[in-house]
Amino acid sequence: MVYLDYAATTPITDQALLTYQQIAKDYYGNASSLHDIGGQAKDILEQARQIIAGPLHADPREIIFTNGGTESNVLAIDTLLRSSSISGKKHIISTEMEHSSLLFYLEHLNQLPGYEVTFLPGEKEGQIDINALKQAIRPNTCLISIQHVNSETGVIQPLAEIGQCIKDKGIAFHSDIVQSFGKIDVTRLLSFVDCMSMSSHKIHGPKGVGAVYFSKKLTLKPHPIKTNHEFGLRPGTVNVPAIAAFAAATSEIFTDRQAKEEHLHYIRDLFINRIEQENIPLKLINTDYQSPTIAGCFNPLVQGDYVMLEYNRRDIHLSTGTACSSNQQKIPASIQPFMADQEEGKRFNRFSFSHTTTAQEVEEFIAVSKQIFSKMKGEKKKYEQKVNG
């Protein structure tokens, strides 16, 4: 079996799973309870907060736990807008290439009275045009939300330049860093981003847990449903075992992080080079601004879902795009800057890697690819001969 869909989810590590089991069994108290058992759970919760904050160089109290990346995105935007509403500003700038969890929520806001959202397209090599961003800023712009690494193409947006554009303008800056946290360097983001969303299951932690970073420079209003959880920003009892396992996964993935990233670059380069060497008919999205974890490809023959199924029959697992939007027929905006036409857009597949991906797995993929595309070419030739009589 070769798994090449790490951008969708990752297998939980042994240490993260063991942590979950031990905390769930031995520290089952409610972290908000005042007795000793609750206090023990509270201690574990705060230790986890410190661990998640560490790689970001953040204050632990700037970390809010959620039930995953989707809630992190929605909670981030909802909290920021609620906290800035006293100024009367309701214009938001984002991109057409955001994860569906954020895109759908912003589209919903765009329908509400008073709110207006400007969606910037991807330009050359999938990045936004900084000049277009500058032109989109208005006196009533309150929030900019732009994903760090795109989940379909791996394109990295220029967050530092964006942050510089809005410096001292009183505009909050949020970024979905689900695809970059634990995979590429995120240590400098705090110098220009006010709020960030993260997810555990993208870094070999459990599903159902995530986090939001809110800069202490922000003045946040509590959740309208009065609650004493997560500094008043989120209702619901926190899932201490899952949070502890998330922290364990974070500790693991940030250990020797630079070496892990170097391995990812090696694997992605090997993947690209071997495709070219073996003349496998895949047109790769390959730019200077890309995460080493993702390689998006177009094929010249059939739709991406057919390719995915052919690989799946041979126990190689990949994607046609972001798993959360795989049931959508619309071609993702993130791949449109790279495709020749709409038909090519339908022939897209995403391959994504982990620091655990091996060169041997790449070679297995290459061998299977040669079989699959040889078969497809043969089938196409027979069809053309039949049609042409």
Rank of each mutant, 00 (worst) to 15 (best):
D26G: 01
Q179K: 14
L233K: 07
E310T: 07
Q385E: 14
Q135Y: 08
P113R: 13
K386E: 14
E310R: 15
I335T: 07
I44W: 00
I63V: 13
K134C: 11
E276V: 14
Y105H: 14
S85T: 12
L284I: 11
S94F: 02
T95R: 02
P222T: 05
K217C: 00
H204G: 04
I162M: 13
S291Q: 06
N110F: 10
R188G: 10
A48G: 04
R138C: 12
A340Y: 06
I366A: 06
A172H: 09
K221C: 09
S352F: 00
Q157S: 02
E98C: 11
H174D: 08
G205F: 04
K89S: 09
P222W: 09
H355T: 01
S145I: 01
Q47N: 12
I92M: 02
F373A: 05
P241D: 08
T357E: 02
E116W: 00
E152S: 10
E361N: 11
A259N: 09
I52N: 05
T13V: 13
T70V: 12
P337T: 00
S101W: 00
G114M: 06
K221N: 10
V117M: 05
E384F: 13
S87M: 12
A333E: 11
T237A: 14
L190A: 08
D26M: 13
V74S: 02
L34G: 14
E71V: 11
Q179N: 14
I184Y: 01
T356G: 01
F353H: 02
D168W: 03
R313W: 09
E364W: 01
T141D: 07
A245G: 11
N312P: 01
H223D: 15
L282R: 02
I335L: 07
F254G: 01
I86T: 12
G170E: 10
G378Y: 08
K167T: 15
A132Q: 07
S319E: 12
E125I: 03
G296F: 01
I12V: 15
I316H: 02
M196N: 09
L106I: 06
V307E: 03
Y105V: 01
Q336W: 04
F254Q: 01
L4M: 10
D129Y: 01
I162A: 11
V212A: 12
K42R: 15
G122R: 00
V240G: 03
L106N: 03
E310V: 08
T118S: 12
P222F: 11
A16K: 08
S369Q: 05
E379W: 03
V368K: 09
V74G: 03
F351A: 00
T66D: 04
P241S: 14
F214A: 04
P60Y: 07
T10Q: 12
H223F: 11
I372T: 06
G296T: 08
I86F: 14
G69L: 09
I63Y: 09
G182C: 03
Q127M: 10
A249C: 13
H355V: 03
K375E: 15
N299Y: 04
T9L: 04
V240M: 06
H99R: 14
V240A: 09
L80C: 09
R268D: 04
A41N: 05
P60A: 10
D305P: 03
G154Y: 05
Q40I: 13
N239L: 12
L159G: 00
A172D: 08
Q179I: 04
L264A: 02
A53W: 06
G210C: 10
A211F: 03
A242P: 02
S72N: 03
